[in-house]
Amino acid sequence: MISVHELTKHFSDATRTIVAVDRLSFSVQAGEVYGLLGPNGAGKTTTLRMILGLLQPTSGDADVDGYRATHDPDEVKRRIGTVSATAGLYQWLTPREMILFFADLYGVRPQDARERLDDLRALLDLSPFVDQRCGTLSTGQRQRVNLARALIHDPPIMLLDEPTLGLDVVGSQIIFDYIAHVRSRGKAVIVSTHRLDEAQRLCDRFGLLHRGRLRHEGTLKQLQDETGCTSLVEMFLQLLGESETSDDERASA
């Protein structure tokens, strides 16, 4: 479903060039949840934005269901549902109006959109506030509206960028249920997070990202064999330690 090949992104300003993502390659199958893990600034969000076609890669490419964002951005966008912690809502619209508006943007027929909204209301328990102004909703309610918005066009691929950021236990649980739900519907899912404990519970496979490079990739079992660590947290600490030593070596050289 998703195949990323040698994806690279440089950000440069007048004084310096930052390599945000460095020759990243991985692929995700339908019905699979892929965890893109790494500390803040590892390049997770940048990678997701390039897959979605919001950012132009410096080099390399990402194929989504056979389409490439650089060539057919709309075909790619149509197949992807996105959820991110920073996504806001239209303050003056109701969740119903906003979700139907996005259905319209994605070209869903009004009748289908209404039916699907009914399903999502049940799934995400939106009914109590579906006709209330978005500006009056709580953080958890907002996140649920965003989850519903991302699914209204029933995309085969979901990109979730730090979906549990700022949510309490209940809110996070809703996200876990949601991911389980979309996996059961056979969607390919990429979840980016720095919460390793969550990832371990959620994902089928993992990509450990550090400073824009993919350091380790595989199932938990494969990673355990490769690194000799038992948990993702240990693996990361090891990874951070390695890069610091290599930095020191570089500095002393």
Partner: peptide
């Protein structure tokens, strides 16, 4: 500023 622009641009609309 409200964070809706990114979701909007992510939609397949010119």
């Amino acid at each position: 500023e409200r964070g809706t622009l990114e979701t909007l641009i992510a939609a397949p609309v010119p």
